[in-house]
Amino acid sequence: MSAAWQREEIDAIAAADDLHIAPFRDDGKTYGTLTWIWSVVVDGDLYVRAYNGTNSRWHKSAIAQKAGRITSAGLTKEVSFEPVDGDINKRIDDAYRAKYASSQYLAPMIGTRAQAATIKITPKN
């Protein structure tokens, strides 16, 4: 059962650049290695993209297993993953532009490779 993010949690995650993601491995119960990725928040929803695109190991696991764990801003959360497509990606691009304006990783994060590997993260319960 997915739920919405608490306001103060999502604000803290939006401000931090320390989101680590660990989708379940193939057995559906072992967490993968907490991997440090680039995250943004749009309208209170949390989105991430794979810098290395759909070949990123964590991304493959997230698509296959649909669940796992994240850590960010001192929080550890059990979460669900779902792929994202469509117009929302333009707003996600804008959020990356705002959050990572000075980063050399901005261009790849709004490029087609990462765009094709966009995932929405929602908390369980």
Partner: peptide
């Protein structure tokens, strides 16, 4: 920090931490 960003981006591909 640019060096950390570099290993972070490679780690992302391998599902590995910067230290790894």
């Amino acid at each position: 920090q640019a060096l950390v960003d570099l290993i972070r981006s490679v780690g992302e591909r391998h599902e590995a931490t910067p230290a790894q």
